[in-house]
Write a protein that binds this DNA or RNA. Structure first.
Lengths: 379, 379
DNA sequence: CTGAAAGCGCTAACAC
DNA sequence: GTGTTAGCGCTTTCAG
């Protein structure tokens, strides 16, 4: 622990200062402060308020916390606040927390379970008892011990199967499978068959679900998916999300090289989509004339050129729901069972997608990939 | 204050539990914990460590803070973490703080002095004594009272003239004037004369400085600036930075309408630049063939199409410097005088700028605007 | 309706 | 080297 200059709460009045000035006791001040002023003598109240104002008194959360074990502070852990998606997420979490009188302290996990755990434990040592996890690693075991100690956790962006965990876990998420499905389906509906999927290999629930959605849509349309259409490049070690766009570019370049027949691309998220667009252009192809690109998340999709068709991630609704769920639990006004909130996404069509052109390349599709089959799941 | 379920630090051992198990006193544990174990008996140390491990003991920051007035937590206030620039800023602040053992709690000020003040006061009530202000309103008076109480404040993104304030204030910033200058100068060097400046009217120091840089470059090149080249649309009320791109678009549309002779555009930041690009295209002009665009900040500039020429904002260096400066002060290892750190930016040339085409429009420039003068500042 | 007293978990004198 | 004591600012029985 670092040295500090020992500066005390200089200039900060304490409850006893107020009591003295108001000619009453600390207890009474405390009662007043905690909403137990209902049947207090009016002039006592008046004196208290006057004293508080005069002294510019604010109660110390530390002292209060020491006594009650309670602090109006939430922890937020995301892969990286530098990622615009999580920045927006943080912004909404902040606002919802503020509305309930809570502050939020954040940490970037860098998708590292150990780092995430350390942060969470640090939060605990600060007295924080409510935690929002804004990512979705497959495993949550690193938080089990904390949960058993009493940390309330709500997971954002992944749907949790309650029975998967030994501890109660609320979850709030967009229906990621449906997101992947909608993105793919949109391309399919436009007439594309050879559709690539641009994603890093980081194992998260939301990513797995989105990919499942892609497969479901393809299957439903009777398109046999070529393995080369799905990127398998693992995301590099110190994964910070900062390089997501670069990764998307590399991945897409690879995809395009292996499979010239591709006319449509579904990107895991906006950052990957930006990288994908760059790669498509470097490959000498136009968007959407030659390759259509659809993104998921819709954080910056509308801002670029061309504006990207994207499945919109309802971040605000999710964040608000997560915060309220968490605080409700902290304040003990909840049923015991874990809650799972899932919100359906919608697609926003913009200018990065269009009908495929009849291209000589597509005609020369190698092997069976892209070939239409009898659609046995037709609906 | 909201009700809570009164859950105590259940399952959390205290220092006396450790003392008991280690068959020693709390003081000794405390000494051990605070790096005063130099000449402690080795077996005492061993028993302590064993006990700590066994109990999974972690000291309570709240109790420690109550005693010492110290808490390893920093407050960070930015206009909006949803803004990618500030998200990246927050990420670097986080990392620098973490390296020094500090957590960071953040708030979005929405460029509202009152909101900013409330946050800062709340931070204070949590025991936080170090604050980073990541915006640069012209006035800082709303923080004066807090500063006088002992809050350490470092301002990021604005250069502070120490004597402007009654309280000591460290500042860390890029040389914003130079940033504006470099951006404009780049366009000038390419041969542009009619150069617009895209910015909201929010009064901040960094914005004023950047605009000054624009003027300086224009003056130096002997170009008379037409008032219509500089947007004067005030940013709308509840300014959240979320709509910066939209604002940039509206502003640019206006600029282009008023002044068809413009062949170059300097944008206040990346978000404005994105909006500017959209407006240029809607106006039926190509980038950079017909209009060159240069941005400032370079947060997403490289990711879009075409990749934007931009003055690079050294956010990491600034954030790290700010955090270290702040913590040094908190830990009392600083000279008394306020520090001003200024870092020079550099421009990164990409594909959104090129030499202007000889256009009939430019030739028909109305009035004197855009006319070359004798360059009396030539160097 | 108000107050006195005890104690949350920790650290800092000051003994021993 | 290690322990004793007091107390940070607040809340909470429990009396009055």
């Amino acid at each position: 622990m670092p040295e500090h200059n020992g500066e005390r709460r200089r200039g900060t009045a304490s409850i006893s200062d107020v009591a003295r000035l108001a000619e009453t006791s600390a207890t009474t001040i405390s009662n007043y402060l905690n909403g137990r002023a209902h049947r207090m003598a009016v002039d006592t109240i008046a004196r208290i308020e006057e004293a508080i104002r005069h002294l510019n008194y604010r109660p110390s959360y530390a002292a209060r916390q020491l006594k009650t074990g309670y602090i109006p502070m939430l922890g937020l852990l995301v892969p990286s606040v530098a990622n615009p998606f999580h920045g927006v997420l943080a912004r909404h979490v902040e606002e919802a927390a503020l509305a309930r009188g809570y502050q939020v302290v954040f940490g970037s996990s860098l998708r590292d379970a150990l780092r995430e755990q350390r942060y969470a434990e640090d939060f605990w040592n600060f007295g924080i008892r409510g935690l929002i996890i804004g990512s979705s690693p497959l495993e949550l075991g690193h938080l089990a011990e904390l949960a058993s100690r009493g940390m309330r956790i709500v997971v954002l962006d992944r749907n949790v199967n309650a029975s998967d965990f030994a501890f109660p876990l609320d979850s709030v998420s967009m229906d990621n499978l449906r997101a992947g499905y909608l993105a793919t389906r949109h391309l399919l509906d436009l007439g594309h068959h050879s559709i690539g999927y641009v994603s890093g290999a980081t194992p998260t629930v939301s990513r797995r679900d989105r990919l499942d959605g892609y497969h479901q849509a393809m299957r439903e349309a009777g398109v046999l998916v070529d393995l080369n259409w799905i990127s398998t490049i693992p995301s590099s070690g110190g994964y910070d999300d900062t390089n997501a766009a670069d990764l998307g570019k590399v991945i897409t370049a690879e995809l395009l090289k292996k499979s010239v027949e591709l006319t449509g691309l579904v990107a895991l998220n906006d950052m990957y989509a930006l990288g994908a667009c760059a790669a498509v252009r470097e490959h000498g192809r136009e968007i959407p004339a030659e390759v259509s690109v659809v993104s998921i998340d819709d954080v910056v999709a509308s801002l670029v050129h061309p504006p990207l068709t994207a499945v919109h991630h309802p971040i605000e609704a999710l964040s608000t729901a997560a915060v309220n769920c968490l605080i409700d639990r902290l304040e003990g006004r909840h049923a015991v069972e874990a809650q799972q909130i899932v919100i359906a996404p919608e697609i926003v069509v913009r200018l990065s997608t269009s009908r495929p052109k009849i291209s000589s390349r597509a005609a020369s599709t190698p092997g069976v990939s892209g070939k239409l089959q009898v659609n046995q799941w037709e609906k």
